[in-house]
Amino acid sequence: MRISANTDVCVGAGQCVLTGPGVFDQDDDGVVVLVTDQLDDEAAVARARIAVDLCPSRALSVVD
């Protein structure tokens, strides 16, 4: 599964970093950074899906 992040709409709420710390990070300005966009293990996928749902600016999506 692949994740994509739209940094233009990110509002830096940081919910993704709390939910999927190995997948999502923030740069010094607070904007989302993908540590990896390719998710293989099931637990990481589940956490990423939660992060997609929680993101208040809908900046995250599951690509496939």
Binding site: V11, G12, G14, V17, D28, G30
Partner: peptide, 15 residues
């Protein structure tokens, strides 16, 4: 809104 918020979010990152 985005400009104001972006000026601040770096202060509140998880790190």
């Amino acid at each position: 809104h985005s400009a104001e918020r972006r000026a601040l979010i770096g202060e509140f990152t998880v790190r």
